[in-house]
Structure formats: C-alpha cells, structure tokens
Design a protein around this nucleic acid. Structure first.
Lengths: 136, 136
DNA sequence: CTGTTTTTGGTACTTTAGTATGAGTCCCGA
DNA sequence: TCGGGACTCATACTAAAGTACCAAAAACAG
C-alpha cells in the first residue's frame, strides 16, 4: 500500500516536471518538439516496465496455502516429513534429520499418503505441489 | 524474434503518430500542450507494461535445458521415463504408458539414477528440476 | 556393410517403501 | 481429571524399487 502511494506520487511529479520541461523548451525554442516527446515517451515507457515488474513479483512468489494444509488435516510433524520427502530423502534420512526412528517416519508417511490421496511418495509430492502446500 | 520486430515497429509507428498529433495540436491551437503530453505519457506507459508482460512470460515459461540432457548422456527414452517418474507414476504404470515391460523401465530408471547421481527416484526428480531438465 | 549406441527384456537378489496393528507418552481443552 | 489428538515406536508383513549381469534386436552413423 505504501509502495503504491509512493509510485503514484512519483508518477505525478514526473508528469509535472515534464509539463515544466515542455514549457521551457517552447519558450527557449532551441529544443525541438520531437525531443520533448521522445523524452516523455521513454520516461513513461520505463515507468510502465518498472511498475509491472513490481506487481508481477508479488504474483510470482508462490506462497504456501496453509488453509489447505489444515483442511486436509495434515499435522505439523507430518508436514515436516512431507517437506523432507519432496527434497528426495529416504525414510531413514528423514528419521535422522528429525531425530526420530524410521518407524515414526513410516507412520507419518502412511498418514500423509491417505490424506493426500496418493499411493506413492512421488505422487504425494506432485499432489502437494498442485495443491500449493509445497513450494514449486 | 518476429514478435520483437513487430513490437518495435508498433513502437516507432506510434511515436511517429504522436509527432503528427502534436503538430496538428499546435497548428490548430485548441488542444493544450498538457493534454498532448498526457496522452503520450499514458500511451507509452501502457506500451511499457505490455512489453514487460510479454518478456516476462518467456522468462516464466521454464524452458528445458536440452543441452544439459545431452551432456548427461540421457537418451530419448530415458528422458520419457524421467518425465513419467516426475508425474508420480510407478514403474508398472510407466511400463503400461510406454507399452514396454516393467523390466525395461527398471533398466531405464537404474541408468537415470546413475546419470543424475541419485539414489532414489524422488532425489532424481529434485536434481532434474534443479538442473532445469524438467519443468518445475 | 560394420561397429556402436539405444532400446528392449529377463532372472535373481537386496533394499526401501508402505500397510496393519497395537501401544505408550504428552499435551490441551472441556 | 478425563478424553482425544498428536507424536512416538515396534513388529510383522507385502509390495515396490533398485542393483547386477546378461543378451538380443533395432536404430544409426561412418
């Protein structure tokens, strides 16, 4: 919100500056109209690109749908396991990373597969990403 | 490439049109300089946004690094298998999809794991995506 | 046409993954 | 304090996944 106000302020200021520039240009008469128009065009062209880039960055940031996670009944620990699975770790490796036994991880994985309606961990990864509960 | 030429042609044409518009405006004298400048600003602002959007689409479309695939010595058939793996299919399902036996898929997968320096298919998926040989 | 790579497939085996079931601990809200 | 959910772990399976080794077509380049 603050950024939007800043950007629009900058826009108005640059517009006013251009009005002034054009006035001086016509008064002195040594700057052709074409140059003034060219400058205006370039300035607003750049402003257009800048604003667009800023707004697109927010869209691009694939944020995680925490509501969906809750909706599916995936617990905190289960989600941690899911993240590790998506990194390509084995059950044993996940167990070591989370300081629990492999049995525990197997239980978590089994529950995850049911909750994500999947038959394999690879399928679970796919589904989780399509549901936006894992960053792509 | 064709699009780039088209866009720049459009840019030049619109610039020339604005030159003409400004000439008429000053001749007739009933259109203020401010309006002309405003129109120019808005037009190029929009053009800037448009071009940026187009160029970002290409960036966003995560294209596949075919050179890398060749570099790793991954054959055509192996790559097909890799794509199926990333979709979360089992060896049997891949075999059915590609009309070959499960043994063949196992061979391909085994070769893929060596070429992608991975121990598991989940790890292979991760690696392939980080190497940009699979769309994210 | 010949040598090489790719693709296919099999057998036999080891290792992970996943299921089913039961059970103990801990924490939190009613 | 009592029940329930979350987390932990174990055993005993079954089912996939992955390895190793071999071998024969098929495609392909020189």
């Amino acid at each position: 919100m603050k950024k939007t106000i800043f950007v629009f302020s900058a826009l108005i200021i640059s517009l006013l500056l251009l009005f002034k520039l054009s006035s001086y240009a016509y008064l002195s008469g040594d700057i052709s109209k074409e140059i003034v128009i060219g400058v205006i065009a370039i300035v607003f062209f750049v402003i257009g690109i800048y604003i667009n880039k800023k707004s697109l960055k927010k869209e691009k940031t694939n944020f995680i749908d925490y509501k969906k996670i809750e909706e599916l009944g995936i617990s905190k620990r289960e989600y941690e396991v899911l993240v590790q699975i998506s990194k390509g770790l084995s059950n044993k490796e996940i167990a070591d990373a989370l300081f629990v036994s492999e049995s525990t991880i197997k239980t978590h994985v089994s529950n995850l597969l049911v909750k994500l309606d999947s038959k394999r961990r690879t399928q679970a990864i796919q589904k989780a990403k399509s549901l936006q509960i894992l960053s792509i």
